[in-house]
Design a protein around this nucleic acid. Structure first.
Lengths: 264, 264
DNA sequence: CGTACCTTTGACTGTCGTCAAGGACGGTGG
DNA sequence: CCACCGTCCTTGACGACAGTCAAAGGTACG
């Protein structure tokens, strides 16, 4: 598999979905991937987890389908989306290496959303049963697995804040910075990277239209905050992006007594 | 404590924070409150949980504070909010009877948001340590506690969908219906109830301004969908509210191949 | 080489935020 | 009891940000 499709990271994301592709991962490997502490006991554990390989466009699970697995991304890029009753898609997250997805199925034993591969993907399967059993066997793991869920929750909260109170420009800026951080964490360049989603998908994720996203990117380009050529992004002024003024500052008003606004 | 403040539910919410107020709850009681299955073993458990009483305006926990407890609402109404670096408040949820809050602290052992009582509140304290230990002792509980988290997650996802793709009118309508359902679940009237938050707080929660909320409510009143007099709501046409047209239908466009839109 | 999709850009429109004024309610103190 | 105040709610007029509609060029792929 010499070439990846367009969602290939220029730097070397290719190694993530390397040619041979592992078939099994140990518990310790999975923990490391999830940035969880790996104790001796865990390192000694002989549980193995199966890998699955998906290609662009393939669906890993759909909404409503019985919940049996958690999924850990070993490589590749995906999108999780809810499809409402009218068939409208709302993208919830773009899982990538080190992320877990399928979590929302725990509640009523059915997945609440669907997840689709946006590039070649290497996914580790974690049967929910195994997951809970391991939590019981290794107490340190138990707490950790709550953390994984909690992490998800924090991410959603951040989304809510973003959607609820930021201008279109600020949302796009933040999104790019998040991607940048994420890529940097994974060992890629946080400065230069390729978007693996379309403008429409970005807009959908951010609660904007594709036109607004496109215009905003053009504006950033114009201002010299970044350079953009189709999917290729080069972040030039991260600070400028980070400090982009928030929403036309209405929402401040609810915060009165509790938090004296230090700023103008 | 004969009278509750304005957030009192006309029907009889008073009993929720009854005069004496319990001091301790058993594990079985807490599980029941959380709508988790109660097994024999759990019923036999002798762990007891302490209650705390808060009055309007008191803060239960703040952001950044070390995480030690989970909180279960036994009675009363609260709000959880994130305060960003500029002192802007973003309301994340309005916890009420049967809800858990403080969950977002698991991740990095610090609460990510603050929670304030909006009425007299009766809160059950669940030390996180106890929580995880119980999960280990009763395997059925372990799964259940994941469910509690997962439930949270679903709620956040629904919020995201709402904020990302619904018009102001639809957001307000949905919000009212959610409240209605919630009250009905708790044994109050789902039709007639009192809002326990200001317009500003509603707006903040929904990503709108207080003026927009006010105007929207007036419009619904005008249309006969409901009657509103300050905090007092009477839902007259739930169906009309439920089927309010979604956002100026752009976002549909991302959904093409995957989900052929069956509607017009 | 043609088709399908993605992206950009422009012109226009509408929803919702902004600013402002006025009224209702509830608590407090004279 | 009434005046006074702060907070909350409503309504109007206005404007802007972002959505809508449309057209055209670019890129990928068969």
């Amino acid at each position: 598999m010499p070439t990846l499709n367009e969602s290939d990271q220029s730097d070397g994301a290719a190694l993530v979905t390397s040619r041979s592709g592992k078939l099994w991962s140990t518990l310790a490997e999975v923990c490391a991937l999830l940035r969880l502490p790996v104790t001796h006991a865990i390192r000694a554990d002989d549980t193995h987890f199966h890998h699955m390989h998906y290609r662009t466009g393939q669906r890993i699970h759909s909404a409503g389908q019985p919940f049996e697995m958690l999924y850990v991304v070993h490589g590749g890029f995906l999108k999780s989306a809810m499809i409402d009753d009218l068939g409208n898609e709302q993208i919830l997250s773009f899982p990538m290496r080190g992320d877990v997805f399928g979590v929302d199925g725990m509640h009523n034993r059915r997945y609440g959303c669907e997840t689709v591969a946006m590039s070649s993907c290497d996914i580790i399967l974690v049967p929910f049963k195994t997951f809970t059993e391991l939590g019981k066997r290794y107490s340190e793991l138990d707490v950790s697995s709550y953390e994984v869920l909690s992490r998800h929750l924090m991410a959603e909260q951040a989304r809510v804040v973003s959607l609820g109170s930021l201008s279109a420009e600020a949302r796009v800026a933040r999104f790019l910075l998040q991607l940048s951080d994420r890529f940097a964490q994974l060992g890629f360049s946080g400065r230069r990277f390729n978007l693996f989603m379309t403008r429409a998908e970005m807009g959908n994720y951010l609660g904007l239209t594709l036109e607004t996203v496109s215009r905003t990117l053009s504006a950033f380009n114009e201002l010299g905050y970044l350079s953009v050529d189709m999917r290729a992004i080069d972040i030039l002024a991260p600070e400028a992006l980070r400090t982009l003024r928030r929403l036309p500052p209405s929402h401040q008003r609810t915060a009165r007594k509790t938090a004296p606004t230090g700023q103008q």
